[in-house]
């Protein structure tokens, strides 16, 4: 109880001082050297992009000279939901300054996140938000998901030279992210610019390399005039590119979509997947850390309209999340389109 009172007092004090720091229309530069312990909590461990996010967060941790501890802990894949709830609950018990979570528990995380906030722990989501926004201070959105449709349509346009057949190789039929992105692309394709691009089929590789590989080859058999396979999943795009390369089909059918530079490097250089897009998870971890550090050290209030400087990435502003009315987000930025020009630098 004594502990709690102290925390409340500290929080009140911090909120008080933060009021001075945020003058209207003015970008806050975060003071370095504040001691806050923070937890970076991925959906689960053992996934490359989450490790990259951790690298970005560690970079920011060093840059901001935080004498506190930055922990990268997460559950195992088969225990993701319960594990995330457990870590969130424990973080509140430990009195962590902030938890940065790529939420995989849907709204099931809400009670534990609210309890964490009550205990004085800031909850910052990244990569995947809390759907209802309850228990969440702010969401760091990697990209504007509305723009993803246009990006994919544009890559198809450029690869096909404005004319030809395209097929989509997605993850599972009920993957909500991918379904939304494909729907967005279909809307984008209605624009006159893409009138000569025909979307012939959408197939599913279940986000498994072997299934995706076989589906990609089946597409080529089924549609002899197919020009590009668009795969909005990192598993699918890599499997499709490998299938085209193995069968010597790269001259005929190109692969594009959302992929990881490190996994796509060889296919981009040999022309099988000349263009693909993604966001940089290191940047995402870096920006997330800056935000969480600012909030937990009381230098940011987390109110809409607040602008702060996130080190090498420049200024960012907290705004309302258009996808989830009543909640707050920081939009990291546009997609990065990778080609033979820039893929090598990003792959390392």
């Amino acid at each position: 109880m004594k502990h709690f009172t102290k925390l409340t007092m500290a929080a009140t004090l911090l909120l008080g001082t933060a009021g001075f720091a945020t003058a209207e229309g003015h970008s806050v530069t975060l003071e370095t050297g504040q001691e806050v312990n923070m937890v970076l909590l991925p959906k689960f461990l053992g996934i490359l992009v989450f490790d990259q996010a951790n690298e970005g967060a560690q970079e920011a941790h060093a840059e901001l000279e935080n004498p506190g501890e930055l922990l990268f802990i997460g559950p195992t894949p088969e225990n993701s939901t319960a594990g995330q709830i457990e870590i969130m609950t424990t973080a509140a018990t430990q009195g962590q300054g902030a938890v940065m979570i790529s939420n995989n528990a849907g709204d099931q995380i809400v009670p534990s996140a609210l309890a964490a906030q009550e205990a004085g722990t800031r909850v910052v989501t990244w990569d995947s938000p809390i759907p209802s926004g309850e228990g969440e201070d702010v969401f760091i959105a990697q990209v504007d998901f509305g723009s993803i449709g246009v990006i994919m349509a544009d890559m198809a346009f450029s690869i096909l030279g404005g004319e030809g057949q395209m097929a989509v190789l997605s993850a599972t039929p009920d993957a909500s992210n991918q379904n939304a992105w494909i729907a967005a692309m279909q809307v984008a394709l209605e624009d006159e610019k893409y009138a000569n691009i025909e979307l012939v089929d959408v197939v599913y590789g279940d986000d498994q390399a072997e299934v995706s590989y076989n589906r990609a080859l089946a597409l080529v058999d089924q549609y002899p005039d197919l020009g590009v396979i668009m795969s909005p999943t990192t598993v699918g795009i890599q499997a499709a590119a490998k299938a085209m390369q193995d069968e010597g089909l790269c001259e005929q059918v190109k692969v594009s979509g959302l992929g990881l530079p490190s996994e796509m490097l060889s296919y981009t250089l040999n022309g099988c997947a000349p263009e693909f897009a993604l966001w940089d998870f290191r940047d995402l971890g870096y920006l997330t850390y800056f935000t969480a550090y600012g909030l937990a050290s009381g230098q940011l209030t987390g109110d809409i309209g607040e602008t702060f400087s996130a080190g090498r990435m420049g200024d960012y502003t907290i705004e309302e999340d258009p996808g989830r009315p009543g909640t707050k987000r920081i939009l990291m930025g546009p997609f990065t389109v990778y080609t033979a020009e820039n893929v090598e630098a990003a792959a390392n």
Binding site: T76, N79, G83, T90, Q94
Partner: peptide, 16 residues
């Protein structure tokens, strides 16, 4: 055991 490990930030595969 779980709780003790969690408080010591031992999670994921090691805990399992």
């Amino acid at each position: 055991l779980r709780n003790g490990m969690a408080l010591l930030n031992i999670t994921g595969h090691i805990q399992t």
